[in-house]
Amino acid sequence: MSDFTNNSRVDKFEKRRKNTKSLSVLLILGSILLVVLIGVMVFGGDESAEQPTDEKAGQTTGQDGQAGNSGDDEAGNTDEEETDENNAQDDSTGESDTEENNTQDNESDAQSGTEQVEPSDDNVTEAYTKDWQPVGTEQSEPHTTNFDEGSQDRLEMRKASAVATGLDEESLIMWWIQRNGDNSVISTVSNADNTEYYRVYMTWVENQGWKPSKVEVLKENDQEWRFE
């Protein structure tokens, strides 16, 4: 009876030992599985967490790229502005060259077909005549010369002086006008820079206006002293 009891105790102990061992194994396996699951969750979560960061990084890069394009656009706009300025300068230069060419052409036209004559004094470097036409008039007959500034005679004398010398009518300076007998005058004029000086002899032609008859090119402006 005691042997049976002992055997039963031994069997129970063995079963408990085996159960404990199985339970330990299961616990170990469960722990390993739990660690694996935790690891999967941790690493999987990190990857998913990194994704928005990559997207943000991509968005930041895109913004930088746009900023770069904006800079390129600004540089392009600057180039266009510089091009416009250069074009404006070229146009301005072209206009100046055109005005100079027109003045030279006027002077050339004024002197074409001229005949050299004797100078009237030592201040004259060159004198010439030409068969100029009267410049026309808005005045009626009988004509009386009006020397006042702004008068119709002064305006038409300016035009005649420009035709004879080739100077620009709008910019030439009329320094002095003096009588030279009946219905005749002499105007002393210069260019706008006061570097070219002329005496223009002209005569009134009835109903046709002032007609240049002779031009003298002067060494110096001999009428400027009146305004010093």
Results as ranks from 00 to 15, higher is better:
residue 30 G to D: 02
residue 57 A to P: 03
residue 43 F to L: 12
residue 20 T to W: 10
residue 21 K to M: 06
residue 45 G to P: 01
residue 35 V to Q: 03
residue 26 L to S: 07
residue 56 K to M: 15
residue 41 M to C: 08
residue 46 D to G: 10
residue 24 S to W: 03
residue 61 T to H: 10
residue 67 A to P: 01
residue 45 G to Q: 00
residue 42 V to K: 15
residue 30 G to Y: 04
residue 40 V to M: 02
residue 40 V to Y: 09
residue 48 S to N: 13
residue 29 L to T: 08
residue 43 F to W: 07
residue 64 D to F: 11
residue 36 V to R: 00
residue 33 L to P: 00
residue 40 V to I: 09
residue 24 S to L: 12
residue 36 V to K: 00
residue 53 T to Q: 08
residue 30 G to A: 10
residue 35 V to L: 06
residue 48 S to R: 15
residue 56 K to A: 13
residue 59 Q to H: 11
residue 52 P to E: 07
residue 60 T to P: 08
residue 51 Q to Y: 09
residue 30 G to L: 06
residue 30 G to P: 06
residue 61 T to C: 04
residue 49 A to R: 11
residue 48 S to I: 15
residue 40 V to G: 08
residue 33 L to N: 07
residue 24 S to N: 09
residue 55 E to Y: 12
residue 54 D to R: 12
residue 62 G to V: 01
residue 43 F to C: 00
residue 52 P to S: 06
residue 52 P to L: 06
residue 67 A to R: 06
residue 21 K to D: 01
residue 44 G to D: 02
residue 56 K to D: 14
residue 23 L to S: 07
residue 27 L to E: 08
residue 28 I to H: 09
residue 27 L to S: 13
residue 59 Q to G: 09
residue 50 E to M: 13
residue 44 G to M: 05
residue 59 Q to E: 11
residue 51 Q to C: 04
residue 56 K to Y: 15
residue 55 E to F: 08
residue 59 Q to S: 14
residue 62 G to E: 08
residue 58 G to Y: 14
residue 36 V to G: 04
residue 32 I to Q: 04
residue 58 G to W: 13
residue 23 L to H: 01
residue 60 T to V: 15
residue 32 I to W: 07
residue 48 S to D: 11
residue 36 V to Y: 02
residue 50 E to L: 14
residue 60 T to K: 14
residue 56 K to R: 15
residue 21 K to P: 02
residue 67 A to E: 07
residue 36 V to S: 00
residue 28 I to E: 08
residue 40 V to L: 13
residue 37 L to M: 09
residue 50 E to V: 12
residue 61 T to V: 14
residue 37 L to Q: 03
residue 20 T to P: 00
residue 63 Q to T: 10
residue 46 D to N: 15
residue 51 Q to R: 12
residue 35 V to K: 02
residue 60 T to E: 14
residue 48 S to K: 15
residue 52 P to V: 02
residue 40 V to H: 04
residue 65 G to Q: 13
residue 36 V to D: 00
residue 49 A to M: 11
residue 22 S to H: 07
residue 65 G to T: 12
residue 23 L to P: 02
residue 34 L to H: 03
residue 31 S to G: 11
residue 33 L to M: 06
residue 40 V to T: 08
residue 20 T to R: 11
residue 33 L to K: 07
residue 39 G to C: 04
residue 25 V to R: 12
residue 36 V to C: 00
residue 30 G to V: 02
residue 64 D to L: 14
residue 53 T to C: 00
residue 36 V to E: 00
residue 20 T to E: 13
residue 39 G to P: 00
residue 34 L to F: 02
residue 51 Q to L: 12
residue 46 D to K: 15
residue 59 Q to F: 11
residue 66 Q to M: 10
residue 22 S to T: 05
residue 20 T to Q: 12
residue 63 Q to H: 07
residue 44 G to V: 01
residue 26 L to P: 02
residue 38 I to L: 05
residue 63 Q to E: 09
residue 59 Q to Y: 11
